[in-house]
Write a protein that binds this DNA or RNA. Sequence first.
DNA 1: CTGAATCCCTATGGATACTG
DNA 2: CAGTATCCATAGGGATTCAG
Lengths: 144, 144
Amino acid sequence: MYAEHTGDPDRAAAPHQDDAWPADAPHPCESWPDNGRTVRETLDRIGDKWSVLVIGILSRGPLRFSALQQRVPGISQRMLTLTLRHLERDGVVSRTVYAEVPPRVEYQLTPLGESLRTIVHALAQWVTDHHEEIESARRRYDAG
Amino acid sequence: MYAEHTGDPDRAAAPHQDDAWPADAPHPCESWPDNGRTVRETLDRIGDKWSVLVIGILSRGPLRFSALQQRVPGISQRMLTLTLRHLERDGVVSRTVYAEVPPRVEYQLTPLGESLRTIVHALAQWVTDHHEEIESARRRYDAG
DNA sequence: CTGAATCCCTATGGATACTG
DNA sequence: CAGTATCCATAGGGATTCAG
């Protein structure tokens, strides 16, 4: 679409722009021209350093704080707290306090959080599947 | 669901742990005990502020630098450059330079990048679908 | 047009110590 | 156990300037 400019009149077969995606599903990726900010803001939440991991773990069922911390390898207690607060604020995770002698707090996904399970799952699967490929790509890039 | 607790020796019906996920698919979310770091490192790449947006846009076809910048709302030139370099390094995006009078550079997803399309798409869809829900959850949280 | 380089501020996040 | 509070280091990222 962006004309020929300068020298060459060619390049008409550019496979891009508003066509494409023949038999595929419609989706919001086309170009988030203004919507972008919204997408970004929401993405930021689950796009931070730990949210996806925490959601992934919680996708298997409720867990208390300490159990969560054990299952998310390198996370600090501070970061786990912050991450959980954020997720709670966004309605992705719910927090239940039990007034017991040694305090017990359980976290679990809300329905909204559950709706993320498939995606987080897919993400984890993708990373697992392609992690080697990425590693080698990096080596190749750093070398050449 | 989670029993009465307090002075209870019970809580055996906890819906968590290594069972669950009956008829669902197996996945790497179970607990990334050691794998976690790997997942994190890879996730960091696409989990940064812009990668998902850029991948989403590129999922529709190759684009040159300026076109990309236009389509990703708030991104600065610096951040677009950095994001593209990272994605290129990870083998998700390829960069093609055309030796023309005014330099032209086109970016497009590699096969590896293409394999991310479905997920990014799903993510964008999810955000679009639930963004309002999240907004209201935030308001509720901030209020209460 | 594409992008490297610089400046500089802020958010992120780790370590540690302290509480109910 | 489940946090909160501090201190502090660094990465993220915006604005601006310079260059091929």
